[in-house]
């Protein structure tokens, strides 16, 4: 991969859910080494974008392209995309009763790395990551997200990403529901995912997390599109002024 080619290139992406158009022409380029943040009102389509990137079957691409590592992935199944280096930390991780966290992590790591990791080695790696993220041992034996608190779910999501080491990590409101200390710990976890070969797309409502995970690019989502992009300072402006001025700016520029 040449340095010029974006890791992820979303081009004029239109997406329908149950015959309703939700994404209406998203354009977004993310290069390796970058951290991007997406902010925007409830219901503006942020999660839809994240689901579409990882290939949720209910989200149908009607127009446009998603190039990942230069290849159009629209036809790929979620597991293919995951093995290709994409991962999503879910806004609402689902519970799977009867499946223990440790079994799931092992299966997942094996699937992504394409080979079995010896039990002992895997344990060590897992324990080290758990320690960093402040996840207690008892979670290994618990069923995935079953009865987890909101914050616990988010930590386990980041734990998974820490083990899978995706080239592109999409984090959908990973900061929501975290207490103050947890926010710090999880942010560190997110920063650890970042290196010159990887990129992060962070969806959030709050400036808070961006104090720890500093984006080079901030995008404002509105009605299924990115309506404004800027540097790290944009999030602070949004925090201070809300979204109305962005929209006003938009309408006035459209009129003029």
């Amino acid at each position: 991969m040449t340095a010029k080619q974006p890791l992820l290139s979303v081009q004029n992406l239109h997406v329908k859910v149950e015959d309703k158009e939700i994404l209406k022409g998203v354009d977004l380029n993310i290069y390796a080494g970058e951290v991007h943040a997406i902010m925007g009102r409830n219901g503006s389509g942020k999660s839809t974008l994240s689901y579409t990137l990882i290939g949720h079957p209910r989200y149908v691409v009607t127009e446009g392209k998603i190039l990942f590592k230069g290849v159009d992935i629209v036809e790929m199944t979620p597991d293919q995309r995951a093995r290709n280096g994409m991962a999503l930390a879910f806004q609402y991780p689902v519970a799977i009763p009867g499946v223990s966290v440790s079994n799931f992590l092992r299966a997942s790591v094996k699937a992504i790395r394409g080979k079995d990791v010896p039990v002992k080695e895997f344990r060590q790696e897992l324990k080290a990551q758990m320690k960093k993220l402040g996840v207690a041992d008892e979670f290994l034996g618990r069923y995935i997200n079953d009865g987890f608190s909101g914050g616990e779910k988010k930590r386990i999501e980041i734990l998974q990403l820490a083990l899978l080491k995706p080239a592109l990590a999409v984090l959908d409101e990973t900061d929501s529901g975290l207490d103050i200390d947890a926010l710090k710990i999880v942010s560190e976890g997110i920063n650890n995912l970042s290196n010159p070969e990887t990129a992060i797309l962070l969806i959030t409502h709050y400036q808070r997390i961006l104090n720890y995970v500093e984006p080079q690019f901030v995008h404002v989502f509105q009605d299924g599109r990115i309506v404004k992009s800027g540097g790290g300072e944009l999030s602070k402006e949004l925090e201070a002024r809300g979204y109305d001025w962005v929209l006003q700016e938009l309408t006035s520029s459209a009129v003029s």
Binding site: V94, G98, F104
Partner: peptide, 28 residues
């Protein structure tokens, strides 16, 4: 659940593997 399948598949498991995992969990 479609959401359960999607969750497991988004972590690299094939549809068959994900289904089997959900079912093994159900029978656990």
């Amino acid at each position: 659940g479609e959401e359960q399948l999607f969750y497991l598949m988004s972590r690299g498991l094939t549809q068959d593997e994900a289904t089997a995992m959900i079912i093994n969990g159900f029978f656990e």
